[in-house]
Simulated scan of single mutants.
Amino acid sequence: MVLNLLLVFYEAMKSSGKAWPVISEVVQERCLKRISARVRFIEGLTPQQQAQAISDAIADHPEQQLLAYVRGKFGEHGLLGIESETEKMLMLAALNLVECIAEAAPKSTQ
């Protein structure tokens, strides 16, 4: 499933017509740290606070459509509950793809 996401993201980036930089390991690591920090932040919150924090993070994210696509695919496969380490790693990989794309996205010059 994550490979499918990667292919969809690649095609979206390619069809944007913009020149995309190579996403380095440094960028990947920085993005993964950002995701991990968000997860640690919400772990101590009540379920209602968690839902609000997640909603706020999505609303403020520069790649909302990619996040929605990831959520939809994980929902289709019944993986939103993250009940195992494997599911956790899949989710982290998918979210890291989105985060890296958001960070590397060519800025528009208007």
Rank of each mutant, 00 (worst) to 15 (best):
G72Q: 09
N96H: 03
G44C: 07
L3K: 13
A53H: 10
R34G: 06
E43D: 13
C31R: 13
A105S: 13
E43M: 08
A104F: 04
Q52E: 13
K33M: 06
Q110E: 14
G78D: 13
A68T: 07
E11K: 11
E87M: 07
R38V: 04
T109R: 14
A94F: 02
P106R: 09
L7R: 14
A57K: 07
E76A: 11
L97P: 01
C100W: 05
S15H: 04
D56F: 03
S15R: 10
P62K: 02
Q28C: 04
R30M: 03
A68H: 07
A93Q: 10
A68Q: 10
H61P: 09
A94W: 03
A102C: 07
A68K: 12
T109N: 13
Q28H: 01
R30S: 09
E103R: 08
M91K: 07
S55G: 15
K88Y: 08
F9A: 10
I23N: 00
Q65C: 04
I101H: 11
E85M: 04
E76H: 08
E85A: 13
E29P: 01
A93N: 07
G78H: 10
R30W: 00
Q49L: 05
V70Q: 04
M1L: 13
Q64M: 09
F9M: 09
A105N: 08
K33N: 12
V39W: 07
L5K: 04
P47E: 07
D60Y: 00
I42W: 11
L92P: 04
G81I: 02
S55F: 08
K14Q: 11
L97N: 12
V2D: 12
Q48T: 08
G81L: 10
A37G: 09
Q48H: 01
L80I: 14
S108Q: 14
K88T: 02
P62Q: 05
L32M: 12
T86V: 11
R71L: 08
D56Y: 03
G78P: 12
Q64W: 00
N96P: 07
Q49K: 10
V70N: 04
M13L: 03
L97Q: 15
